[in-house]
Design a protein around this nucleic acid. Structure first.
Lengths: 189, 189
DNA sequence: ATAGTTTATTGATTTTTGTCAATCTTTTTT
DNA sequence: AAAAAAGATTGACAAAAATCAATAAACTAT
């Protein structure tokens, strides 16, 4: 079992040695280059990725080539273009690793298999899903009730690492604002 | 078993007569008046509600009394102030029935009990959660990539019933815009 | 039914944020 | 290290949307 995954699972589920090796066998390691595309817009996401090192970015592109970042996934978390993965439909969004990354990946079928083979796996997954959903609710709240400045301040409080680590361009469209506006927010207070 | 709930469950899970009566026993019927508050901001949400008739609205209020609608839940769906319910913490949002409604409610503890008592219940709930999460992702997408007009048009295409049924004021803050802007969107094309 | 209250519309204006363009800075590649 | 590319900042201007204010319309409740 990969130590990073072990850390993630600790406290969430208790596995016997045998179960741990079953789980382990379902995950494949993947190394990506900076800016590598893991799921292209229009293709079906076949895997969920666990970030061991690096990060993932889910983003939308429009006809004019504008990008907007839907999600950012840092170390120790799972990510994919979720609607595509679950509904098994072509993805509206793309999935990219903005930094060269080390990932663990599991396919849709193997995820299903773990539900039946490992008691408690589905419960763990459900709880993870609940937390991801809560995070997305917070994000919706920030859009319906905060202006650009307040959204930026909130991100700085709740997730300062993201701001330091990723290019301003990405932070800007994650916040739903232009990079010029973000640049001004950072200087003028 | 309430017929509306039965309809919801059909296709999602198969229950024996015995199981159906167990499920049924965990849900309590609740009738609400128009604009009744089910979860006040600051209190902990102890129930999830299934809408038999009427609707639910999850909304935020700021210091100046501005409201913004986080979610709208129509007939045949479950709703609550989700983060509060799951994390068992005081709710940032309030839950209200904008119309007089008929609801089925189940407590946090009873929801847990169903997971253990009814095989397949957790799977059904996980799948429901996945779909709710996908819906919230779509909502985030609309905020990061669409302007007011496009968000309104999208809502009209995907959920026209909401627009017809609820006051424009609520639709406006659900879309994250002022009611004046919505009013202008509706006339000028 | 009618008074009262809430909700919706419309116009005028301000504020916020986006766009375009130029420059500067940093990073990457050769 | 130099050249090239990409990213960030800044200013000027434009566009989108919010706010304020005044009516108008639609509900609610008596």
């Amino acid at each position: 079992m990969h130590p990073a995954l072990q850390t993630y699972l600790a406290g969430k589920i208790t596995l016997s040695a045998e179960e741990a090796s079953v789980v382990s066998s379902y995950f494949k390691v993947k190394y990506t280059k900076r800016n590598e595309i893991l799921v292209a817009k229009g293709s079906v996401a076949r895997y969920v990725y666990f970030v061991v090192k690096g990060c993932l970015r889910v983003f939308l592109t429009d006809d004019q080539g504008n990008e907007s970042t839907r999600f950012l996934v840092l170390e120790g978390r799972f990510g994919t273009t979720f609607p595509s993965f679950i509904l098994r439909q072509p993805s509206i969004a793309s999935l990219q690793s903005p930094e060269s990354s080390e990932l663990l990946m599991i396919s849709y079928e193997d995820r299903q298999a773990l539900y039946t083979r490992i008691p408690g796996w589905e419960t763990m997954d459900r709880i993870g899903l609940e937390l991801d959903y809560i995070e997305s609710i917070r994000r919706i709240e920030s859009f319906i009730s905060l202006d650009a400045r307040a959204r930026y301040d909130t991100l700085q409080q709740t997730n300062p690492e993201i701001i330091q680590r990723l290019p301003a361009k990405i932070i800007a469209d994650y916040l739903g604002i232009s990079q010029e506006t973000l640049s001004r927010l950072k200087t003028k207070r």
